[in-house]
Design a protein around this nucleic acid. Structure first.
Length: 754
DNA sequence: CTATTAACTTAGTATGGGAGCT
DNA sequence: AGCTCCCATACTAAGTTAATAG
């Protein structure tokens, strides 16, 4: 791959990368107080180093110069022109005429009619956006304009229908339900190919949106009177409110969380807030609280649930399906789309990841009064439960969410949004990969540029350039600043501190080795030793000079600055695009390298998984080794041994059959030989499959493939690979994944190049 | 500017149901 | 028929980024 650089190998092979992240966390416990004055430190750092930076006013000039320099070579100019062209082409292709109204849906059901409405066979072809190669040869612009013209007619037609949306919507409801059943048969040929349509411009996300609102958590069910809470050894009846919160804790009793000081402290504080004044007066020490009876009750409950009869379970299942059918879908622009999370998060105790200062706090119950509903004006608005009101109903079609509320732990807003299979998510996803592909086209010049910048006389530019190098080479995340004491102490690239790296002029026979050791997103440990270029090394030494361990490595850089810079280099470029780009390009290149034509399907899939794994390692996607890992490995080994034995038997039988045939020379015995031969073959195949499976599983012990597959790897690479080698796409993507990547499965052919 | 907020993507883990085995 | 194990899914926390407020 031209775009690739060979940095991956060292990582893929670095066995040392995965320490036990949990054990490791202790090391970071001290951190909190240690770097309390962090902000101040940063200021201090700034003035300390300001000498190395001649007047900030020169920055602007410098930037201009860079631009000129960039464009000065003809080759580069061409490159940029090309890039521009691409962008336009893609954008053009993606524009959905904004007047191409998607107002209220006449018939959600009958996809055939919709199909006609949105892409009559006539211009279907021209609307179809294919990959860039094609784009270069087609006059997109003109095409788009034509389409607009055509669409206008349609739009008008739709608007007429808009006039009586209410009625229409009602009609359709009956249908929706009826449809749910019919679906199974019809669906295949009815699947809506949103990727063959044009996109909205100007940040409009939809024209019509109708949904039923969220499903609230079930109300609290008080404990039966025989299940008691004990304080200081004596039974104590709690008020409903206090009892509910107590049950949250009781349910977690076997969890390690409840042994942590912070968790207990936070829980107790919030619990006390729910107590009556009498309770508050009495219950003053969590250690005197005995929740064990409650805990047992819940365990018994879950046992009982498991022991339910088939019918009972069936009933629950049906109820869930009913709920899904009623609340799990919305209508957005003529299409019924699946909602991702239509249930409101139930109350409970906050479980932060890592050393979270807020772990154990009470996560409040969300009521209708907390909910903001978003839908179109002309839709049938969701109704709040009887006797309640929504906080607000708004009609903002510049956003994609249907419902939002503010969560009480961090004060963050939570949303209900659509499923990944929806048009609105799919388009975004596709666009993400297109941006990464544009990066591929300019990454070489960009790399050349940051290498130049390592020599800059401005500290801020050097820091930026080194940070960018890390982001590119190591696929680090951007690393926003976080508010101290509000979250676990984790970092990304821009927020790295001096204590997170060690410099070794020479280590293990390599020069200029940097050792990274920090907690990243979700408090997952990143540990890596990488040889870097001398210039980078020298720069790091410079950045770390005269600093305390808890000082920022890049004291003149943050994610805003970095992203602003990136935006100037390429439209749509941000730090995370590098992750997407490097992940996808690595997959593509690894697939090329690892797949061998002679191998059978399961060996090819192992190769695929290995390629996938290389990406997961690059992106540091880890998982806790499954609790049952050792056992399941053993089981597999047992199976393998059994299979081997079986194979030996089969071979023996074959041999004797052969001998037999030789003597008897009749049809029957010949046939027997054939049968035995086939049996041997079959068993060999099975054995191979098992062995491959074992290898795969072993290699996957603490690596999670899912995240990269879902979020970083351009699905068209995988689809193309499947097509090229005749692998059924089902072997690579399960049902959900196929739904999410339907666009890629439909449009990528075997020559797709990322 | 800097800080905050809003919106959206990315993340690992818990759990529950179903496939495959005994 | 019951059991085990494994995967898919649900869940929701924790990031990134751009927009907005101060």
């Amino acid at each position: 791959m031209t775009g690739d650089h060979s940095h991956n190998d060292s990582q893929i092979n670095s066995g040392s990368k995965y320490g036990d992240s949990h054990k490791h966390k202790d090391k970071y416990k001290e951190r909190e107080h240690k770097h309390k004055d962090h902000k101040k430190d940063k200021e201090r750092e700034k003035s300390k180093y300001s000498n190395s930076e001649h007047k900030d006013s020169s920055d602007k000039k410098h930037r201009e110069k860079e631009k000129h320099k960039d464009g000065s070579s003809d080759k580069q100019k061409d490159k940029y022109k090309e890039k521009r062209k691409e962008e336009r082409a893609f954008d053009g292709a993606l524009i959905r005429g904004r007047e191409n109204g998607f107002a209220s849906p006449p018939h959600i059901k009958s996809e055939p009619e919709n199909e006609e409405l949105y892409h009559s066979p006539k211009h279907k072809k021209s609307l179809k956006r294919e990959h860039d190669d094609d784009d270069e040869f087609k006059p997109k612009k003109i095409k788009t304009e034509n389409d607009k013209g055509e669409k206008k007619v349609k739009k008008r037609r739709q608007e007429e229908e808009d006039i009586k949306p209410k009625k229409k919507t009602k009609d359709k409801k009956g249908e929706v339900r009826a449809d749910g059943k019919k679906k199974a048969k019809k669906e295949p040929e009815e699947k809506w190919k949103w990727w063959e349509e044009e996109r909205y411009t100007d940040g409009v996300k939809w024209k019509f949106l109708e949904h039923k609102g969220p499903v609230f958590a079930p109300p609290y069910e008080p404990l039966p009177s025989n299940v008691k809470f004990y304080y200081d050894g004596r039974p104590m009846k709690l008020s409903l409110e206090a009892e509910e919160v107590a049950t949250f804790f009781a349910k977690m009793l076997d969890h390690e969380y409840t042994t942590k000081d912070v968790f207990r402290k936070n829980f107790f504080k919030d619990w006390r807030k729910e107590m009556t004044s009498e309770e508050k007066a009495k219950i003053t020490d969590l250690n005197k609280c005995d929740f064990s009876e409650m805990n047992e009750y819940f365990k018994a409950q879950s046992e009982a649930r498991k022991a339910m009869t088939k019918q009972e379970k069936q009933k629950i299942k049906e109820e869930n399906e009913r709920l899904l059918l009623e609340y799990g879908y919305c209508v957005m622009d003529n299409h019924r789309e699946r909602i991702a999370n239509f249930r409101i998060e139930p109350p409970g105790l906050f479980r932060g990841r890592g050393d979270h200062p807020k772990m154990g706090m009470l996560k409040r119950r969300i009521r209708p009064e907390d909910i903001i509903v978003n839908c179109s004006k002309d839709s049938e608005h969701p109704k709040p439960p009887p006797g309640t009101k929504w906080k607000e109903v708004r009609h903002d079609n510049k956003v994609t969410w249907l419902v939002s509320w503010t969560e009480n732990i961090q004060g963050a807003i939570k949303y209900i949004m659509l499923n990944p299979s929806s048009r609105i998510k799919g388009e975004k996803d596709w666009q993400k990969y297109e941006t990464a592909r544009r990066l591929k086209k300019c990454v070489d010049s960009l790399r050349a540029q940051y290498r130049e910048d390592w020599k800059s006389k401005e500290m801020r530019i050097r820091q930026r350039a080194v940070a960018l190098y890390f982001i590119d080479k190591l696929a680090l995340r951007a690393g926003n600043e976080k508010e101290e004491g509000e979250t676990a102490d984790t970092v990304g690239c821009c927020s790295l501190r001096v204590e997170h790296l060690n410099l070794y002029p020479e280590k293990d026979g390599q020069e200029y080795v940097v050792e990274f050791d920090f907690l990243g997103k979700d408090s997952i440990r990143y540990y890596n030793k990488v040889p870097v270029e001398k210039r980078v090394f020298k720069n790091l030494q410079l950045f770390m000079e005269n600093k305390q361990p808890e000082d920022d490595l890049f004291d003149r850089l943050n994610t805003t600055i970095l992203n602003k810079h990136l935006q100037e280099l390429m439209d749509g470029l941000t730090a995370k695009v590098f992750r997407t780009y490097n992940a996808s390009i690595t997959l593509q290149q690894q697939l090329k390298e690892l797949t061998s034509a002679e191998e059978n399907v399961s060996a090819k899939i192992l190769s695929y998984n290995r390629a996938n794994r290389a990406v997961a390692i690059l992106c540091n996607h880890q998982r806790a080794p499954p609790k049952t890992f050792e056992k399941s490995m053993q089981n597999l080994q047992t199976k393998i041994d059994a299979k081997k034995e079986q194979l030996a038997d089969a071979k023996r039988e074959l041999k004797s059959a052969k001998a037999d045939a030789k003597v008897r020379r009749d049809e029957k015995s010949k046939k027997a030989v054939e049968t035995k031969k086939k049996a041997v073959q079959r068993i060999e195949e099975q054995l191979m499959k098992l062995e491959v499976q074992a290898t795969d599983r072993e290699e996957n012990k603490q690596i999670a493939l899912g995240t990269s597959k879902l979020n970083y790897l351009d699905p068209r690479i995988s689809v193309a690979w499947c097509k090229k080698w005749g692998i059924p796409v089902e072997k690579i993507y399960n049902k959900t994944q196929r739904e999410k990547f339907a666009w890629a499965i439909d449009m990528a052919d075997e020559d797709f190049e990322f």
